[in-house]
Design a protein around this nucleic acid. Structure first.
Length: 632
RNA sequence: GGGCCCGUAGCUCAGCCAGGUUUAGAGCGGCGGCCUUCGGAGCCGUAGGUCGUGGGUUCAAAUCCCACCGGGCCCGCCA
């Protein structure tokens, strides 16, 4: 048995090649189709040494190895096939014996890892941008746990930001209406979205109206145009919930929203009781909505870190500024009541680019508002310090949109200057999700929510599944929809922008979550019907294998190595494409060869093979959070 | 103006970090087939590509380097 059969195979090949060539440090690559399975380029070695080339060529036929076959020297490459009878047995025995742990690499040193993800501001329902974050983050959590690391999944809850105060202010005036709607079954974050967006719109209308005074004609027109946009935001919400919006607008009309919000922000940071209660109540309502959505996708957090608790009330955020002044006075400027951190200067003078993986340009950062309240970045530094101190992580993976590259770079520089090991903090950046040519704006009420995406997917799946009897359609539809959505977001490199396309997400054909689930069901039902449990060693690999059987053995053998690389690079999309290839190959095999009705001997082998495929599919699905179904 | 990311088939994307062999891979969509066999959300076949452009490095470039073109994001009291 081997935890990583592929690696064992490579080791064997390298050993033999080194023996033949008398040279060490050879690089094994996958052979191109038609040239065997593995290959070692020897061009450098044999250049100008024809006698060595001849020697290598002669020696290949003498090699004896249980795992390698048909070693030959072609075009400067040492190519080899695999002895599938022996290697295939090693692979299957390993997959069968290890089962749910097949793919784990026991020599990976277990680390303490914090994965912080989703971390949406508690203002409105999660939208498809958050969905990408959530899927990536939760899959990383599952992946790293599978590999044996101790992972803490954390949601950084920004309850201190100015935007939350808009939500809380609006909520103060329509509490009863909000409560009634939630009691009637509306999702709390959905209701609070209206409150947040309308309050924001009223604030914008007020601000723009004030700006109109004494402006020239052109500027005046521009401001009115901008104001009209916000008026139409209110109008849109009005058409959805007239009672709530009417009474909210009426209540806010007598208030200077912007200055009240600023006052509340200060009061909340100071821990003033009334405001604190109000904000917590509002935030908790939105959070209840988040959790409903997260549960649908089986996303669990070990901890919600409330920013006010981990960064503000403990005084850390303010101390960050003072400590920075002390530790790096030449990089902190003070003017007009505001501290500015010269990240640009620090990065350049201390040459931190490589150590902290910084972009070549990092802009300066303002650390506080002139009214004394803290800014997000400063609180974020405080949170990082809190996290490094309290969670004792070897690595902190933060799933955060790529547009925050600069603030995240500034954060690492500050941490470094404050004496912390900032290189442990990894900004796992993902590109944004667009709706065609419009950028989403939850503030303006323009966003596709995760809930609506899921419901649409469920509807779509129901249409396909309704023809099948004897199963709980609703439960299955939900699991398949979740699988489709998770697969889609995990399959695209985080560095690529996504133009959101319902058709692609809801595609249930090959290269999709449902396709993987379906393939698993096929494997499962064969094994279920055969009703025998194949154990390691209870079968022999036939000498005449089909192409498909051989490919499946090789792929099962590659799984641990693939997974190891995926977990080192944090590239989930490579796991996705691996299982898609495996599923394609398995379905080809499935169509062509009987398993249960195969002749004795072959039957046992094929059952073992199917079981091996099932093990790899199941482990992969668990890592990607694709629900595992036995019927669908 | 500066920095970062993306550009591969009509469309959506792997492959690039650690270059490798003669035909650069998937899916969707086209077109043509397969329901007497373990579940057809499947399978088989077929058409479709100057790997954005131009240089360079190399025995060898989609992959590394440089320049340019196209798209996106960021660049001090939002997050």
């Amino acid at each position: 048995m081997e935890y990583n059969p592929y690696r064992a195979l490579i080791k064997e090949f390298r050993r033999i090649a080194e023996e033949i060539t008398g040279s060490g440090d050879l690089q094994v690559i996958r052979a191109r189709a038609g040239f065997g399975y593995l290959s070692i380029p020897l061009h450098d070695l044999i250049r100008g040494r024809p006698e060595l080339a001849r020697e290598v060529n002669d020696k290949t036929s003498l090699v004896k190895s249980p795992y390698l076959a048909n070693l030959r020297f072609i075009n400067g490459f040492l190519n080899t096939d695999v002895n599938l009878v022996n290697y295939g047995k090693l692979v299957l025995d390993s997959a069968l014996a290890l089962g749910p742990s097949y793919g784990k690499s026991p020599d990976v040193k277990p680390l303490n890892i914090v994965v912080e993800h989703t971390s949406a501001n508690p203002l409105h329902p999660l939208h498809i941008g958050h969905c990408r974050n959530m899927v990536l983050g939760d899959s990383l959590v599952r992946l790293l746990r599978f590999m044996g690391h101790r992972v803490s999944a954390r949601f950084y809850l920004d309850d201190t930001g100015i935007q939350v105060m808009y939500l809380a202010l609006g909520y103060r005036h329509v509490k009863d209406l909000v409560r009634r709607r939630i009691e009637l079954g509306l999702k709390p974050d959905q209701v609070m979205w209206i409150v947040y967006s309308v309050t924001n719109a009223v604030a914008e209308v007020q601000r723009l109206t004030r700006m109109l005074e004494g402006k020239g004609e052109e500027e005046y027109r521009e401001l009115v145009r901008e104001r009209d946009e916000w008026v139409s935001v209110i109008a849109d919400w009005l058409s959805k919930d007239k009672e709530l919006v009417d009474s909210l607008v009426k209540a806010l009309s007598s208030i200077d929203v912007n200055s009240e919000v600023a006052r509340m922000a200060k009061a909340y940071e100071d821990g003033e009781l009334g405001v604190k209660e109000l904000v917590r109540e509002a935030v908790n309502l939105v959070l209840r909505g988040f959790e409903e959505t997260l549960n649908q996708f089986d996303v669990k957090f070990d901890q919600y870190d409330w920013e006010s608790e981990v960064a503000v009330y403990n005084g850390l955020a303010k101390r960050v500024i003072m400590d920075l002044v002390k530790a790096a006075p030449s990089y902190v400027e003070f003017k007009d009541g505001v501290y500015v951190f010269r990240a640009d200067k620090a990065a350049a003078e201390l040459k931190l680019w490589d150590e902290l993986r910084l972009p070549k340009f990092v802009p300066p950062a303002t650390l506080n508002r002139s009214d004394g309240t803290t800014l997000y970045l400063t609180r974020d530094v405080a949170y990082a310090i809190w996290c490094l101190t309290n969670c004792n992580p070897d690595m902190v993976v933060r799933v955060i949109a790529v547009e925050q590259t600069h603030p995240q770079a500034q954060l690492r520089i500050m941490l470094k200057l404050l004496g912390f090991d900032a290189s442990r903090i990894v900004h796992y950046a993902y590109e944004m999700v667009n709706l065609g040519d419009v950028k989403m704006s939850s503030r303006r009420g323009q966003a596709v929510t995760v809930d609506s995406l899921l419901e649409d997917a469920v509807r779509r799946v129901r249409a396909i599944a309704s023809g099948r009897g004897g199963l709980n359609i609703d439960e299955v539809a939900r699991a398949v929809a979740v699988g489709a959505i998770r697969y889609y977001f995990a399959s695209v490199s985080p560095s690529k922008q996504i133009v959101f396309d319902w058709g692609r997400v809801l595609d249930m054909n090959q290269n999709s979550g449902p396709f993987i689930q379906y393939t698993y069901v096929r494997a499962y039902s064969i094994l279920n019907k055969a009703n025998v449990d194949v154990e390691p060693g209870q079968y022999t690999v036939p000498t005449s294998l089909s192409q498909e059987e051989g490919n499946l053995l090789l792929m099962i053998g590659e799984f641990p190595e693939t997974l190891l690389k995926v977990s080192e690079d944090l590239k989930l999309e490579n796991l996705v494409s691996f299982i898609n290839r495996l599923a394609l190959e398995f379905n080809t095999f499935y169509e062509k060869y009987p398993v249960i009705n195969a002749e004795p001997g072959v039957r046992e082998f094929r059952l073992a093979l199917v079981k091996g495929v099932r093990v790899v599919l199941e482990n992969s699905m668990r890592i990607l959070g694709i629900p595992v179904l036995s019927r669908m």
